[in-house]
């Protein structure tokens, strides 16, 4: 993982923007950036494929095959600035791939048997099993899974920060204040951390600030420019609202 971009800098290139900027020029950095992004967000794709009615085996093959072709044919060069963000690009590309694949014979070796990314299908499958088979369309399931992945990544980033500073316990205790600001009794939290309620209040505020930063960083990595971060956040919010 590369270092986080500073959201306040405003002009620091984000990773998806790097891919967009590279265009057709296939260089190492672009490739690395893209594979990192794909490695982070492949589970939503797998969920989408499963939701389209493929069984676990076929879905594994298709997901791997999709990535293989993406890198092989340098498909991401097709993504340009006007055509949206990583999240939408990824799904659209997968939809193309699935359409193509339907026409082909299924027995064909996909991706030449080579794993492009190391994907932990067991984890994905356990998540698929947990995924509600309710009202959601495959697209919705994808969007929702994507938003959840992103939140988990951002939160993991914050947690790592805290752990590196030796404040793992503080994170554990305070993390729930993120979704319930002011609702948890500060005094109780303070007791668990052996500090004062005032200090907990400050720490909770700081965690919130850190969370905002981390979330924006994570979103900044998948949009074309800093100015799109708020819009993407709103779109993710909408995806979760359904």
């Amino acid at each position: 993982m590369t270092d986080s971009t500073n959201p306040r800098a405003g002009f620091a290139p984000t990773r998806w923007s790097l891919v967009l900027a590279a265009g057709k020029h296939d260089d190492e950095r672009t490739r690395a950036a893209l594979s990192e992004l794909c490695a982070a967000y492949w589970v939503p794709l797998y969920v989408y494929v499963r939701r389209r009615g493929h069984d676990a085996h076929a879905a594994e093959d298709l997901t791997q095959g999709f990535f293989a072709r993406l890198f092989e044919r340098n498909d991401f060069a097709a993504a340009d600035r006007n055509r949206g963000r990583f999240r939408t690009f990824l799904l659209a590309a997968l939809q193309h791939y699935l359409a193509d694949e339907r026409d082909r014979e299924r027995a064909l070796k996909r991706g030449g048997g080579v794993s492009t990314l190391s994907l932990d299908f067991e984890r994905a499958d356990s998540q698929w099993n947990l995924e509600p088979a309710t009202d959601a369309t495959p697209e919705r399931a994808y969007e929702r899974r994507f938003a959840n992945e992103l939140l988990a990544r951002a939160l993991a980033r914050v947690e790592r920060d805290y752990r590196e500073r030796g404040e793992a316990k503080a994170f554990e205790v305070l993390v729930l204040t993120l979704t319930a600001p002011g609702e948890l009794p500060y005094r109780e939290l303070a007791e668990r951390l052996a500090t004062t309620a005032g200090a907990v209040k400050v720490a909770a505020h700081r965690l919130r600030e850190r969370w905002r930063e981390a979330l924006r960083d994570e979103v900044a990595a998948i949009v074309g420019s800093q100015s799109e971060v708020d819009d993407e956040l709103a779109a993710l919010f909408a995806a979760l609202a359904s």
Partner: peptide, 23 residues
């Protein structure tokens, strides 16, 4: 919002979590 605690980070409501991060 209804959500699956096992799926979301730390079992928290993803919607609220995201909202906390939105300025």
């Amino acid at each position: 919002t209804s959500f699956e605690p096992t799926q979301s980070p730390h079992g928290m409501c993803p919607q609220c979590l995201l909202a906390a991060g939105m300025r």
